[in-house]
């Protein structure tokens, strides 16, 4: 079954959007203008979320940064590469990895203001620690392979990322993990279920240190996903900052 989930929906009509685990329903009351939003678990057969929306006209269902469940306690994702990449000094390699994504539901109001109303996941949530206990980062845990060609991603749980790894040290290095800061990461989607992030450049400077630089989108004709309120920032912040990996690559 092919699920049509990511996209923008008119909620002045009743909706029933199905994902592998849930059914999202909206019921519009023409007289009061109120929309009843509900999300039902398919396996348990029970409604896990019920909300009343007033003044909304459109529903946005987008991929979202996977750090908001069960509560937001970090802004990092640690991607473990199952087939670590070894690079000769000065060498550069291009390829693809996947990162985890969750699903967010936003409602757009008449004045085009957008608010987040629901987040859920189709995958498994696991976190890990990158670095030492004191000063290290909690991060959402994800395992992926390094692909030399564009792979197929798991719908609703993964987003595709093109990465360029460059070894700027004077010795061989092996890259087995990548730390991504969601504050810098933009997500895109291609309806009905494909998700992407912007291209990443990983500059390895030593056997233990690397910098992750957030580049431009590598796909055309994709829609930029809405960002949760905590990840809205100015453009200068994006362009100035990268993520430093200082506790191992």
């Amino acid at each position: 079954m092919v699920y049509k989930v990511y996209g923008i929906y008119d909620i002045t009509n009743d909706l029933a959007i199905e994902t592998p685990s849930y059914i999202v329903n909206t019921k519009y009351n023409k007289r009061s203008g109120i929309v009843e939003y509900s999300r039902t678990s398919k396996s348990k057969g029970e409604t896990v979320l019920n909300k009343v929306i007033s003044g909304g006209i459109r529903l946005h269902i987008n991929p979202v940064h996977p750090i908001l469940l069960p509560i937001c306690m970090t802004r990092h994702i640690l991607v473990i590469i199952e087939n670590p990449v070894s690079l000769a000094p000065g060498d550069i390699i291009e390829g693809y990895i996947t990162i985890p994504v969750d699903i967010a539901v936003y409602v757009e109001e008449y004045n085009e203001a957008i608010t987040l109303i629901d987040i859920f996941t189709e995958g498994k949530i696991k976190y890990t620690l990158y670095g030492p206990l004191e000063g290290g980062h909690l991060a959402r845990y994800h395992r992926t392979r390094f692909y030399s060609q564009e792979p197929r991603t798991k719908p609703f749980t993964e987003a595709l990322v093109r990465i360029t790894i460059s070894n700027r040290s004077t010795y061989w290095i092996t890259l087995s993990k990548i730390l991504i800061d969601c504050k810098h990461l933009k997500l895109y989607y291609d309806p009905p279920h494909n998700a992407y992030a912007q291209a990443l450049e990983i500059v390895v400077t030593s056997r233990r240190h690397a910098k992750v630089i957030y580049s431009t989108p590598f796909k055309t004709a994709v829609i930029e996903a809405q960002r949760p309120p905590m990840f809205r920032f100015t453009k200068s912040y994006l362009t100035l900052h990268g993520t430093l990996m200082k506790w191992g690559v």
Binding site: P70, K124, K126, Y127
Partner: peptide, 10 residues
């Protein structure tokens, strides 16, 4: 392993 709050590392 299945619990979301149990860290993979340590």
């Amino acid at each position: 392993t299945e619990h979301p709050l149990v860290l993979v590392e340590p």
